[in-house]
Amino acid sequence: MAFSLFQDLKLGILGGGQLGRMLIQSSFDFNIDIAIMDPDDQAPCSRIASRFKVGSLKDYTDVYEFGKGCDVITVEIENVNTEALRQLELEGKKVYPQPAVIELIQDKRIQKQFYKDHNIPTSPFILTEDRNEVMRHADFLPAVHKLGREGYDGRGVQMLRQVEDISKAFDKPGVLEKLIDFQTEISVIVARNPQGQVRTFPAVELVYHPEANLVEYLFAPAKISPEVADKAEKIAIDVITKLDMIGLLAVEMFVTKEGEVLVNEVAPRPHNSGHQTIEANHTSQYEQHLRSIMGAPLGDTAALKPSAMVNLLGEEGYEGLAKYEGMEESMAVDGAHIHLYGKSYTKPFRKMGHVTIVDEDLDRLKEKADFIKNTLKIKA
């Protein structure tokens, strides 16, 4: 699949959210013809995609019929019908990430077992079938209980610190993970193309919202030693290589106080922890994903400047047509770039946009990130 043939290939993306929207924006530079399918006719991609189809991402027929009209198929969300993708792959379509990889990542239980079976460092865990089984492992607490399937954007995760918390455990198949006393949480985004070329982005440091379990903001580069950064990069490469995956993979990891690096979860697509690469790196994660799945050489991932990213989440207590407060003040911040996702309706903790800030001075960078976080509010 030659780089010069980009404009002759039809790329189909399953999912029309903000990740798909930013993929489309990046694709304009290469004249890539993109089709989108999403169940919501008002999805962020609906206004900018050259071809937009309303359909269920979980329905075999919808996914199969959509994929038949594409040369290359990718995803911006993992919760898709992989049976249809497998059939399309058998019929000669390029499906990246591969259906087998998507299936593995769709189930956190299988994902964790994969790490264990392939000697990839991760936290100790127990596979559970229901809440009663969690109770039988009360001596394993404190722990985090995660739904095996369909947890997304902070949903499907419960913190169990003591026996009394077990009532909050899921009464469905899940994984009980030992609570790690980590020093920081980082993410390394890695890409691999069909020719086997692999490149990583520098590690970023993640700060989570205490209630929503979503990334609230991040800083790049992460405040970790060169030794830990090198270890994290090698683990990310090891994961994507052992998965034999084509595309972009975000590898979220814990760094313990002893300097150990443990894989938490992965996402086989552009990720919240890579938004800042649009302004802060030679190649954005979106361009890198397009390069990898279209069979092109991978781009330079080096950072141009230190950066921060602030997620713009719907304010708690507000639901309705979005109203943005503090926009003018935030736009006046030097080095700040606001990205809105085209969502007209807000609700608590809904991802409505993000802001990237670049600055050579790390202290000033943090001050600017805090200012925007406390100034730019999405209400109704």
Score class of each variant (00 low, 15 high):
residue 263 V to N: 09
residue 129 E to T: 13
residue 276 Q to H: 15
residue 222 A to Q: 07
residue 302 A to M: 13
residue 70 C to P: 01
residue 372 I to T: 02
residue 89 E to T: 15
residue 219 F to R: 14
residue 276 Q to Y: 13
residue 359 D to P: 04
residue 69 G to Y: 04
residue 206 L to A: 05
residue 157 V to W: 06
residue 109 R to N: 02
residue 301 T to D: 05
residue 170 F to Q: 13
residue 230 D to G: 14
residue 159 M to A: 11
residue 347 K to F: 10
residue 265 E to D: 13
residue 254 F to R: 04
residue 222 A to G: 06
residue 366 K to M: 11
residue 95 V to A: 11
residue 297 P to Q: 07
residue 55 G to D: 05
residue 160 L to Q: 10
residue 272 N to S: 01
residue 131 R to M: 13
residue 196 G to S: 02
residue 61 T to N: 13
residue 121 P to M: 03
residue 231 K to G: 05
residue 200 T to M: 03
residue 165 D to R: 06
residue 102 I to M: 06
residue 34 I to N: 11
residue 67 G to K: 04
residue 27 S to A: 15
residue 264 N to R: 01
residue 152 Y to G: 08
residue 85 L to S: 03
residue 240 I to V: 02
residue 146 K to W: 08
residue 239 V to P: 04
residue 330 S to V: 07
residue 357 I to H: 07
residue 354 H to W: 03
residue 123 S to H: 12
residue 376 L to P: 02
residue 234 K to G: 08
residue 307 S to K: 09
residue 252 E to I: 08
residue 355 V to Q: 08
residue 222 A to Y: 06
residue 352 M to H: 06
residue 51 R to F: 08
residue 342 G to K: 03
residue 186 I to M: 04
residue 48 I to F: 11
residue 301 T to L: 12
residue 40 D to S: 15
residue 333 V to C: 05
residue 42 Q to S: 14
residue 345 Y to N: 06
residue 331 M to N: 10
residue 347 K to V: 05
residue 193 N to D: 02
residue 213 N to K: 13
residue 136 R to K: 15
residue 64 Y to M: 12
residue 267 A to Y: 02
residue 328 E to P: 00
residue 286 Y to F: 15
residue 344 S to R: 11
residue 322 A to G: 07
residue 362 L to V: 10
residue 106 Q to M: 05
residue 322 A to E: 08
residue 24 I to V: 12
residue 242 K to C: 05
residue 228 V to Y: 02
residue 7 Q to P: 09
residue 325 E to P: 00
residue 49 A to W: 01
residue 161 R to A: 14
residue 310 V to D: 09
residue 121 P to H: 10
residue 247 G to H: 09
residue 120 I to W: 09
residue 117 D to G: 03
residue 188 V to Q: 02
residue 365 L to N: 02
residue 202 P to D: 00
residue 327 M to Q: 00
